[in-house]
Amino acid sequence: MAKRRLSGPRTIWVVRVGDDLYIRSVNGPGSDWYRGTRANGRGSVHAGGVTKDVSFEDADGAVNYQVDAAYRHKYGRYGAYIIGAITGPQASCTTMRLVPRVEDAGN
């Protein structure tokens, strides 16, 4: 079965908290990209020459403080405007955990 892409590639800012990877929609829950993740629940991530299929899982709100800190640490050099956007309430309500996906051999 051929994989169906929801849209073209998007740049996402990923952070790690413990052993988990998290992403957010800087444009909030109304963005096309975020709505696509909600509708499909899955996608592909390409980084460092490696592509992995993933599922998007809603993050427990309790992790938001740690995710904010990870964004500030990793991307702080981009300035207050960017960090304010990715750690603000519009983005933090879209926090998702990336979960590696393993397809059944029969699919």
Rank of each mutant, 00 (worst) to 15 (best):
49 G>R: 06
46 H>I: 02
12 I>M: 15
91 A>P: 03
4 R>I: 10
52 K>V: 12
70 A>M: 03
3 K>C: 00
107 N>R: 12
34 Y>E: 01
57 E>H: 08
51 T>W: 01
104 D>S: 08
74 K>F: 04
58 D>I: 01
23 I>R: 05
74 K>R: 15
107 N>C: 02
27 N>Y: 14
49 G>V: 03
63 V>I: 15
2 A>N: 14
106 G>S: 13
71 Y>D: 01
41 G>L: 14
15 V>Q: 02
64 N>C: 14
62 A>S: 15
99 V>G: 06
50 V>P: 00
18 G>K: 09
14 V>K: 05
28 G>A: 13
7 S>R: 10
43 G>F: 05
68 D>Y: 01
4 R>M: 04
19 D>A: 14
25 S>R: 06
73 H>V: 04
85 A>D: 11
67 V>L: 08
19 D>Q: 13
13 W>R: 12
87 T>C: 12
60 D>L: 07
62 A>E: 15
107 N>P: 00
78 Y>G: 02
6 L>W: 00
35 R>C: 03
12 I>V: 15
36 G>H: 10
1 M>H: 12
107 N>A: 12
81 Y>M: 11
32 D>T: 09
14 V>H: 05
51 T>A: 07
59 A>N: 08
14 V>G: 04
80 A>E: 14
6 L>Y: 02
22 Y>V: 04
20 D>C: 02
104 D>M: 01
100 P>S: 10
106 G>P: 00
24 R>L: 11
50 V>H: 05
103 E>Q: 03
42 R>I: 14
54 V>A: 01
107 N>L: 11
93 C>H: 12
41 G>T: 14
35 R>H: 07
89 P>V: 08
104 D>F: 00
75 Y>P: 03
61 G>K: 13
84 G>D: 13
9 P>W: 13
1 M>Q: 11
98 L>S: 05
40 N>A: 15
91 A>R: 02
76 G>R: 09
53 D>V: 02
27 N>C: 05
55 S>H: 12
86 I>T: 05
7 S>Y: 07
96 M>P: 01
5 R>I: 00
10 R>T: 10
5 R>K: 10
41 G>K: 13
32 D>S: 09
55 S>C: 11
71 Y>L: 06
22 Y>I: 03
99 V>N: 05
86 I>M: 11
19 D>R: 14
24 R>T: 11
102 V>L: 02
77 R>M: 10
37 T>Y: 02
83 I>W: 04
100 P>K: 09
34 Y>K: 02
88 G>Y: 09
107 N>G: 03
98 L>P: 03
83 I>E: 04
44 S>V: 13
72 R>L: 05
3 K>H: 11
45 V>F: 09
93 C>I: 15
